[in-house]
Amino acid sequence: MEREKQCRLDYTMSRGRWVGRTHSFYPERIYCQNPLFTVGSKGFFQFSFFMYQISDLKKGVCIEIDGEPFQVVDYHHVKVARQAGMMVTKIKNLNTGSISEKTFKSGDKVKPADVGYQKCQYLYPEGDGYVFMRNDDYEQFTIGSDLLEDAKPYMTEGMDVDIQFFGEIPLGVNLAPNMVFEVIETVPGVKGDNATGGSKPATITTGAVVQVPLFIKEGDKIKVDTRTGAYMERAN
């Protein structure tokens, strides 16, 4: 009997799932969490899905609990006398946005969430949602406005964005940490205004209002931190 061999897939992300392709066995695309698999003597693929140890649970790691995707936002180790250590985490439900506390014991294994990103194009608002299109197959889908609270002020029709998916379910939009916008409305500056002399509201092309230095005028392009909504610098 031919000895089983360990092979590693070349893989990319597609619709939130790993897409692997083997070069020496079969050309079919293979969807899996973990690109490590076993090929037996009869050519059957035997997947060994990856599981997190509690030591893997760092900030930003996405895990699945009871079929729901969560992201670790904070964690700390707890040691109890004569007992195995524990990991206390704060986790964010990626479907609802709620944050809860979860404790894992030493030896626990946690399933990674099938979460990934895909390039899509924002098309237009519709009802209480926003319509996007996948860049690879042009399939359109809608994301509810409640999942886009942080991104809405900076989205413009036709822009490319990274959509986070849990399997086939879109969870939200991941914008660049800073973006450039044109100021379309603000009160005129006064001679002598400078960067440290106060601020004023300015409306950018998306309709969002940003506090800017007094010297900024209509038509100027400014860089905005999309995580906080804060003005960073003049871009032109």
Rank of each mutant, 00 (worst) to 15 (best):
G192T: 07
A176F: 03
V173W: 01
F141W: 07
M179P: 05
D137S: 11
N174Y: 07
T186F: 02
I143E: 07
D74R: 02
Y124A: 00
G67Q: 09
I163M: 12
P170C: 01
C120Q: 09
R134K: 15
D160L: 08
Q83I: 01
L171I: 05
D160N: 15
A151K: 03
F141A: 08
K90M: 06
A151Y: 03
T103Q: 13
C120A: 15
M86P: 01
K191E: 15
F165K: 01
I163P: 11
D162K: 12
G85Q: 05
M155P: 10
N93R: 00
P125F: 00
G85E: 12
D66A: 11
A113K: 04
R134H: 13
P153R: 03
Q83H: 14
G85W: 03
T196N: 14
F165I: 04
I143F: 03
E101K: 08
T205Y: 00
P69N: 08
D74G: 09
D74K: 04
L147G: 00
E68G: 00
L148D: 13
R82P: 00
T205E: 15
P170N: 07
I163L: 09
V190Y: 13
E68V: 05
D150C: 01
G158R: 04
Y154P: 08
F141T: 08
K105P: 00
I204W: 05
R134F: 09
T103M: 08
M86C: 03
G97C: 03
V110P: 06
D74F: 04
K102A: 01
